[in-house]
Design a protein around this nucleic acid. Structure first.
Lengths: 214, 214, 214, 214
DNA sequence: CATGAATGAGTTTTCATTCAT
DNA sequence: GATGAATGAAAACTCATTCAT
């Protein structure tokens, strides 16, 4: 009985997972507006009314997708990063590695979070922004820690820290996209490139070696 | 009758500009799908059939918008950057400054290029990617030049250069968005932050001071 | 376990009554089309398939509702009215009183019968019309009886009798609705108003005191 | 050119009238919920989007229908009734005649106003109630006038007047329906029956000849 | 007996697009 | 050149109804 090709009458949790999986693929490929509930239902192997029965509306479905994927990404990153006893550069390295690994292993999820959710206006952009802010704050925390170890903090202000965190996160996002579409680039390689680039840049900044136009 | 408040019978170029301006605003605010030809025609102050007469279809309209705005952005950046006689760091600085200035002064244009175009699938993503690639190649060229000045090039491969350029462009994009929504951040400040961060990082990289996990 | 708060395994008749009660409420509030089987099942405290097991379809359910409520209304009216030995005016009075009392005590039932059933096309309108015809014939019978007592019948034709019965029933329906939504109006008061108005009018008619335009 | 079988490109006002006509038929036959925009568009000989372009939504369409038909009915009744110089019985007679004539000549309109609008909940019921209240107040005014002519007013209270007006209007509604489905009954006949019945009843009431149960 | 799981068929509504003048 | 009139095609969403357990 069990093990048939087309499983019918599955428990609700399983069906919901299938639907969210299908939605991630569809939203990643077409974007929120262009994705159709018909296609999502078909991808999930169920009828449209069932999607509505469980997820209520396209908007709620997209929100559920964003929440689930954001949770997965944050969870993956958090899992690899140690606590305060680990020095900040080690934590940044672990976070970057986990991040690039997640983006490589779940490209659709990454596209939804980094591109689709952010362009669809409220309430989706807000949901995605919350997650991104979490990451930015995490990075800013590390930069702040590193600055604190240097004597005088290198004259770095709190807004400098924010800006640097934004820059670093943006660099990571860009590299993740590039790595995903450039054959042969591994997550470790991407993480290493960024780590070298960023940590060195930060180090110099704190030594107050500033660049200035002639 | 003629010469009244509402100017009629304007030359085609003017009408087209009005339509593209309206389209930029509309696409920036609602996204490609949610923007309606009705609204665009109304914003442009013309009737819908006229939009079709000049621009043929929503798809062609969006493509025209992307082309025009991409040209404007590239032009603005190119205008500020000197030729090969100028050292690469100066050129990067000029480019960053021009870029952040453009993003600040044409936020709708920047939103369309950086967010909307890239999320709408082909053919728009391709069009936007072409422009971005131009910028990435420009940055990669500068990094390559800088590396060439160092003896041995610091052991930097061509893929390293690509990756670094991707990281730098991503950082710039992220900072531009952050600057646009954080009150009080000027284009010059954003450019300076990134320049300090990036050029220092590059310098260290080339001195082969690499970070590596313990 | 058994005997808990939620009684299970009730006999069929009881379950059916619960369902019909729920259906009366739901149909009265939302109308036939807008009432949903989901809501009815929930109101009845049973699952939807059980409703279908017992009542077969929404159409049959509504028909069953109309039949039951029509029977209840006719029964209530018939119970109060005496046999042929009672004079017609007394019987009309008793009927009106019973009718207004029923409408006041079962407002949902009255709404379903007087409004919803009659507006939903066949077969429901027919079902409701049958009940209404029963009442109209009863009233027509009384008027006929009264006319027969007068010498010559006042020159009243059979169609006159029908028309008067229709008028009287319509007046009663209208008053019932008005009484139900006007605070402080009792069934007895409504019945008295109508009885005064109608019986006097009939009396005059039979004395051939006709009104005619000048 | 003009006079072709299928007129195309008609001015907006004409099309709107066609749509409202079609809607009256469809709503009268099926009721608000069961009527479909598809059918209405087809009956009107236009495409569905045009219906939406002009009437915005099913709800607004139904509201527009109710308003137009209520206006037509009130207008027809008002047109026939004279001013205060005409005695109340003459005015009632004229109003009844106009009313029964309207109901006979526009049966769909009458069905929509008397049945469909009143059963669809807010905001439709309110719209219909407003019109009906207008008629009830008109009738109540006449009854009040007649009572004033009698010495002492026959001891009739203001609520009595309201109740009698409700009864009279209900009787008229019922007779209109009956006349419309009974072959050979003319508007004049229906009006005469009701006039005889009602005016005589009122007269007796005012002479304080009350019926009371033994 | 009783129900959670599932769907076919239909609804209202929207929008890019074109024609006739 | 410019526009009011008009529509084909598709989308989100709902609901009565049935099966498998």
């Amino acid at each position: 009985m069990a093990g048939g090709a087309k499983a019918r009458r599955l428990p609700r949790v399983v069906r919901e997972r299938q639907m969210l999986d299908a939605a991630v693929r569809s939203f990643a490929r077409h974007g929120y507006q262009a994705a159709s509930m018909d296609e999502i239902a078909e991808l999930a192997g169920v009828s449209k009314p069932l999607v509505y029965l469980y997820l209520n509306s396209k908007e709620e479905l997209f929100t559920a997708v964003i929440r689930r994927e954001a949770g997965a990404l944050l969870g993956a990153v958090a899992a690899g990063v140690g606590g305060p006893e680990v020095p900040p550069d080690e934590r940044l390295w672990a976070g970057l590695l986990a991040f690039f690994t997640y983006a490589a292993e779940h490209p659709d999820s990454w596209v939804v979070l980094s591109r689709q959710a952010r362009t669809q206006g409220e309430p989706f952009a807000g949901e995605a922004a919350r997650m991104r802010d979490g990451i930015v704050r995490f990075v800013a925390g590390l930069i702040g820690e590193a600055a604190a170890e240097v004597e005088g903090g290198g004259g770095i202000t709190s807004r400098d820290v924010d800006a640097l965190a934004q820059a670093l996160v943006g660099a990571a996002e860009s590299l993740a996209g590039w790595a995903n579409e450039t054959p042969g680039v591994t997550a470790k390689e991407a993480a290493a490139t960024l780590m070298n680039f960023a940590w060195a840049g930060l180090g110099n900044l704190m030594k107050s070696e500033r660049w200035s136009p002639r």
